[in-house]
Design a protein around this nucleic acid. Sequence first.
DNA 1: CTGTTAGCGCATTCAT
DNA 2: ATGAATGCGCTAACAG
Lengths: 357, 357
Amino acid sequence: MKHDKTPKSITLWDVAKAAGVSRTTVSNAFNRPDQLSEELRDRVLTVAKEIGYLGPNPMARMLRTGRTGVIGLVFSESLQYAFNDPVAIAFLQGVSRVCEQAKASLMLIPTHLNDAAPTAIQQAAVDGFIIYSMPDNSEAVAQVLARKLPVVAVDQPSLKGVPSVYIDDRLAARKAAAHLISLNHKQLAIIAMDFLSDSYVGPVDIQRLKYATFQIPLQRLKGYKDAIQEASLDPSKIAIVECPPRNSEDDGFEVALSLLQQHPRPTGILAMCDVLAISAIRAAARLNLAVPQDLSIVGFDDIPLASQIKPSLTTIQQPLIEKGVIAASILLGNPSRKMSKVLETKLMVRESSGPAF
Amino acid sequence: MKHDKTPKSITLWDVAKAAGVSRTTVSNAFNRPDQLSEELRDRVLTVAKEIGYLGPNPMARMLRTGRTGVIGLVFSESLQYAFNDPVAIAFLQGVSRVCEQAKASLMLIPTHLNDAAPTAIQQAAVDGFIIYSMPDNSEAVAQVLARKLPVVAVDQPSLKGVPSVYIDDRLAARKAAAHLISLNHKQLAIIAMDFLSDSYVGPVDIQRLKYATFQIPLQRLKGYKDAIQEASLDPSKIAIVECPPRNSEDDGFEVALSLLQQHPRPTGILAMCDVLAISAIRAAARLNLAVPQDLSIVGFDDIPLASQIKPSLTTIQQPLIEKGVIAASILLGNPSRKMSKVLETKLMVRESSGPAF
DNA sequence: CTGTTAGCGCATTCAT
DNA sequence: ATGAATGCGCTAACAG
């Protein structure tokens, strides 16, 4: 006596039998309309619908063709954090625009590397990967590269043989610092993004910088220091405090608050990203410091909110959406165009910066 | 004479031959460490690495097992718009949190239905779908249902046989309107989200409501009207203007601006979402209207920004992230738990609403 | 603990 | 314009 085991799915075969044609013909009816008469095609499709055929099985098709129509996106931090980060979201917007045009789907791949089990990166059925702002030594990056699929790196120019899309963070940061210095600010402070993924919040010393794995904050810091040295200011007098901008707790606010209560109080704050800069603006408000009269703040990224808040934020504009567009285009586009691209940045002077008194 | 055709990929077979074991053993070495001796496993894995085996081919594995480890997410609007919408983003955050825990990947599927070609929905190799706030009659929904995979609907309780996660929009909207009315506001105006996906901006008449395909704005409108009727106000005197909140152009601002220049000027604005409400706050500022002294504004959703802006926004809180968490949990979790869930909403009174003069 | 057998469902030659 | 045969690469039963 037989049970119904797995309710055996209906396949090309069943349609072929029901329609009295061969499997090839059914396959063609679905994939290559030009290979059979309109009439026959219609009949096959009708029969298929009648017997409840769901269409070609995607997995079987992928196995056969070797293509998936999906690109995989791998983030440094957890996905959940990515959706807290306006910069990552703008990037996603760019990527998804291109995916949509190309009718490709976008797979967001968690990087869960804790145990020895096969990871989502190893299991992902994709045609290629975008890796977004990962530490170079990351195991996840190694796994992506091991897949031997097309890869595009974003904000990570240092992977050999991998095309990447990025900006000159150092130069851009230098512009930000030079702006404040040109306004005669001498008491500067820096609010840095996380150099390591250990959720540390607090002052940054040389020791910590040695162990830094995130390149972007390192480059931006170098840029700030370039401008500071150029102006012959004393770098040792400049406080650097680190704070991961994506924390749901409002660490950025607290950090800025304590920074503004130091003596002598800084008159100019360099924030490595707009999220931190905006926290600083709120901290200033809390302390009844007027921006920019008492305190100038310069951000980085030019997220949408930067131009909408009061006071609007002076910041470094980088083409966030375009970064996603270009990364996805490289991956989906003509293989001959697989080359790196450096995007331009621009200082946007708005209301949050003004001359030092 | 033979060319190297496709550089034939290395398979289990090759590893088995090279290691002098059977394919099963190699497969087990990768998937079921308990089925063979540690020693042998190590040897197999070493050989695999030596000959450049990349690990089990994901597509073949999927075909064999019938599982993908991926859940598909289908949006009503384009993906690109979704990333412009704080509500959708919060939802994504919730979904991704659960996916991450479950080590599932998340596939964002574009709904490109223009031509006759197979769509991404039909091609998606996923274990189930979440459909997010789609019009009921949507072709995309039909395609999802045709896949006969597990489905969870979000903000869309009316699909037969599909578990869904949603709020009582009508009741919530009623609370919002009742709040303004209790503050003695009599000149109300409504800024509505889009009832149809035709990007229309402007006044709403009954005719348009007849053709509405989006349920959420309809329900919210009904809720507003419930409160209005209950207070015996004249509904016909209440202006309703429609504006898709995700437009990149700042339509919401313009709409609010014109609404506030009407005579008699409304003293209370009911915005169907926080994005529109925030636009209205900016419009009020532009017209030098004090909020809440000259104008009260109530939003809907309680996006993160709502509590951060000045004045902070009175709004209806709905558990945005939790919606994603629950939807994903239903899909990934115990099949016996596949039931709908209605989430609670709460009026958050903040600075943007006050008594009418 | 290991190997043999048997498909998963499809797209693609090649022949008719 | 159509059909028969082949194997994509793998894992799950089962038998040793």
